[in-house]
Design a protein around this nucleic acid. Structure first.
Lengths: 197, 197
DNA sequence: CGTCTGCTTGATGAGGCTCAAGATCAGTGG
DNA sequence: CCACTGATCTTGAGCCTCATCAAGCAGACG
């Protein structure tokens, strides 16, 4: 897992748009943070949650084929990207790896939409916790409730109640709990869902 | 869209297993029918619905990289497969196409798990309707309720009630309705969700 | 014919959606 | 500095959809 020099790194603020749907763009690999993908509803043009990219995942691979993005990509938390594909390794292996990764990520996202509300939210957070060598005391920045609701197919209210429940269970600790604008950071006492084996 | 000679075609009965998870296998392209993918739960080993492949989609691409399948693959309806990658076209373009397709399919599957029950079931059926040149009077074979329930994250009972509802609405007509074993075929008066643009 | 599997339908209750009100915080303009 | 606005989050009350449990039916199969 060679980390490329970060000279080309592109940082993104939480909520910042990487590219619009059906617009030109290029392909990136997520270095840190998380990105949500949306399709635009054919009828009303409303964005519909379509996928998630966490560190190691590729965003906008289809631009290499068509020169156009299928999805709208938005940073969920402060995020860092790097151009893709990198210059190392054979193109085929890199592509196959991206394909396999995409399938696995999609499976996790699908799983985020089944089961009880509190479990879904818990799994989502685990997906967002960076792996830090088995250490379970991770400090993470949570996405806005609106995004967590879209991802889990719950309502904002239910997500909020679930987070309260997780805090009550002790698997989540708020640090600098902020309503209003600003990031909601917290201390997470759950293991990472190990985004990539 | 060149149709390869079907000499290598592999037919699968409904319910037949293409390969197990974490077992050796090879990559296929779906020619007709539909395939469900499952991961095995880490704790109890129960299969968990993870993805769907419809005509044009690739199943088992990760075997080319790792020689091992991530997912269990089971035919939902009578299905025909052909080895992948074919001999035509450049490997990279073929791979990129598969990657883009996989992302789009995953987005549709994610969407199958949000909204009202009857709408979810309707969308699933539209995904399974082969495109036949805009003709809306398609004749299809429905998967078992158990599978439709797993895919939509509903229960068998709710799926059954939703199908009744769709029949009552007139968008679905049972032809040769069979309980017991055997396929449940029906006439579908809905447009295809055009699995591939 | 009995059994098994898969589908249908009904009754009931719980979990989550909806609507509503209030709290907290960033930014803005006076 | 402070009211004001707008955005995000929290919490409560009530209702509705869907999960659950249960019973029964239809066809396949031995």
């Amino acid at each position: 897992m060679a980390i490329l020099p970060l000279s080309d790194a592109r940082p993104l603020d939480a909520g910042e748009r990487l590219h619009e749907a059906h617009a030109p763009g290029s392909a990136w690999r997520v270095v840190s943070g998380a990105v949500r993908l949306d399709t635009l509803d054919e009828e009303d043009g409303e964005p519909v949650f379509a996928g998630l990219a966490v560190p190691g995942d590729i965003v906008g691979a289809e631009t290499l084929l068509l020169g156009q993005c299928h999805f709208r990509a938005t940073a969920l938390t402060p995020t860092v990207l790097t151009p893709w594909p990198g210059t190392v390794g054979s193109p085929s292996a890199s592509l196959l790896g991206a394909l396999a990764r995409t399938e696995q990520r999609a499976a996790k996202v699908v799983a985020l939409r089944a089961g009880q509300a509190i479990e879904r939210v818990k799994r989502l957070i685990q997906l967002l916790v960076p792996e830090n060598g088995g250490e379970s005391l991770a400090h993470i920045v949570l996405p806005p409730l609106r995004d967590m609701a879209d991802i889990t197919a719950l309502t904002i209210e239910t997500v909020s109640r679930s987070l309260s429940g997780l805090r009550r269970q002790g698997v989540l600790e708020s640090t600098g709990q902020r309503r209003g604008r600003g990031q909601k950071s917290c201390r997470c006492l759950m293991p990472s869902a190990t985004p990539m084996a």
